[in-house]
C-alpha cells in the first residue's frame, strides 16, 4: 500500500496518474462511492472524505478500524490512498470539526504500518517519508494504541 499525503491542491491526484500510472477509472471517489465498492479500486481519493462519511455512522474511536477493514480488503498491497493533510491549523471551535481532523490523523497513523511507502506531495514535488520492503500483513494486524489496545 502507498499513502499519498499533503495539503489541498498540491498535485496528489496527478502523482497517482503520472508517477504511479493509475488511470481515472482506477481511482475511486471516497466522497461518493458505496463503502462496499471501495475495496475494488486500486486508487482511493480521498481518505479524508471517507472519514467524514464514516463519522456520520460511527463514533470517532471506531473509525480507524473501519478504515482498516475497508483498506485491507481486495488487492490491498497495490492500493494507493490519497489523503489531504487537515490537521495543521488552529483547533476548530466546532466539536465535529475537531473530531474530523483528529480522526483523519488517527486513520493515517493506523494505515502507516501496512504501507510500503508514505509520500508527501508539496507543490507537485514528492518526498518519500517511509519506504520499507515488507509492510505489516493484515494477519499480523496491529491495533492502534489510541484504539482498543497496544500492538
Amino acid at each position: 500500500m502507498i499513502l499519498v499525503i499533503g495539503g489541498q491542491a498540491q498535485g496528489k491526484r496527478e502523482y497517482l496518474r503520472q508517477t504511479l500510472g493509475l488511470s481515472g477509472e482506477q481511482i475511486g471517489d471516497c466522497a461518493s462511492l458505496p463503502f462496499s465498492d471501495l475495496p475494488s479500486y486500486p486508487g482511493w481519493y480521498k481518505l479524508n472524505d471517507l472519514v467524514a462519511r464514516l463519522l456520520q455512522q460511527f463514533p470517532p474511536q471506531q473509525v480507524p478500524d473501519q478504515v482498516l477493514h475497508l483498506a485491507l480488503q481486495g488487492d490491498f498491497s497495490r492500493r494507493v490512498i490519497v489523503c489531504d493533510e487537515v490537521g495543521c491549523g488552529i483547533v476548530p471551535i466546532e466539536k465535529t470539526q475537531r473530531e474530523y481532523r483528529e480522526t483523519v490523523g488517527r486513520c493515517c497513523c493506523a494505515l502507516v504500518p501496512y504501507t510500503q511507502q508514505v509520500v508527501r506531495i508539496f507543490c507537485t514535488i514528492p518526498t518519500v517519508l517511509r519506504s520499507v520492503s515488507a509492510a505489516v500483513e493484515p494477519s499480523e494486524r496491529i491495533v492502534s494504541r489510541h484504539g482498543k489496545g497496544e500492538s
Binding site: R101, T103, G105, R106, C109, R145
Partner: peptide, 10 residues
Amino acid sequence: GGSGSGKSAF
C-alpha cells in the same frame, strides 16, 4: 506535528 499525527505517543 499535526492533530492526530501520533506526536504524543512518539
